[in-house]
Deep mutational scan, measured.
Amino acid sequence: RADKQHVLDMLFSAFEKHQYYNLKDLVDITKQPVVYLKEILKEIGVQNVKGIHKNTWELKPEYR
């Protein structure tokens, strides 16, 4: 399990490339446990629960 700041850096870097990611792809990118990753994502992102981007994560507007 990596340092939180290191995980945040990896996530922000990923979100610079694409606006939406599913959790599986973010786990592959960060190599972090799902529960730990979700904890961090809830602080900086929102999970889309409907629409064409259903079940994906994106950054909260203040982090874009």
Results as ranks from 00 to 15, higher is better:
R1A: 09
R1W: 07
A2R: 15
D3K: 09
K4R: 12
K4H: 10
Q5A: 10
Q5W: 05
Q5Y: 08
H6C: 09
H6Y: 07
H6M: 15
H6E: 15
V7A: 06
L8E: 08
L8S: 04
D9N: 14
D9H: 02
M10N: 04
M10P: 01
M10K: 08
M10S: 07
M10W: 03
M10I: 10
L11R: 00
L11G: 00
S13Y: 09
S13C: 10
A14M: 12
A14T: 04
F15C: 02
F15T: 00
E16L: 06
K17D: 08
H18K: 14
Q19Y: 02
Q19P: 14
Y20V: 08
Y21L: 15
Y21Q: 10
N22T: 13
N22E: 13
N22K: 10
N22G: 11
L23A: 03
L23F: 06
L23E: 15
L23I: 06
L23G: 00
K24S: 13
D25L: 03
D25Q: 10
L26V: 01
L26N: 01
L26R: 00
V27P: 00
V27E: 09
V27H: 09
V27N: 03
V27Y: 04
I29P: 01
K31P: 01
Q32S: 07
Q32Y: 08
Q32A: 09
P33M: 00
P33E: 13
V34L: 15
V34D: 12
Y36F: 14
Y36Q: 13
Y36W: 12
L37D: 00
L37F: 02
L37E: 00
K38Q: 11
K38G: 07
K38W: 07
E39M: 06
E39V: 04
E39P: 11
L41V: 05
L41Y: 01
K42G: 13
E43P: 02
E43H: 03
I44N: 01
I44R: 02
I44T: 01
G45V: 02
G45Y: 01
V46P: 00
Q47T: 08
N48C: 13
N48G: 10
V49E: 12
V49A: 15
V49W: 09
K50D: 12
K50F: 03
K50L: 10
K50Y: 07
G51M: 05
G51W: 05
I52K: 14
I52G: 14
I52F: 15
H53R: 13
H53C: 07
H53K: 13
H53A: 09
K54V: 08
N55P: 06
N55G: 14
N55A: 09
N55F: 04
T56M: 14
T56D: 13
T56E: 15
W57R: 03
W57E: 02
W57Y: 07
W57T: 02
E58V: 08
E58Y: 07
E58W: 05
L59N: 02
L59F: 02
K60Q: 04
K60F: 01
K60T: 05
K60C: 03
P61W: 05
P61C: 04
P61D: 04
P61H: 08
E62G: 09
E62T: 06
E62H: 04
Y63K: 07
Y63G: 04
Y63H: 13
Y63M: 13
R64W: 08
R64T: 15
R64Q: 10
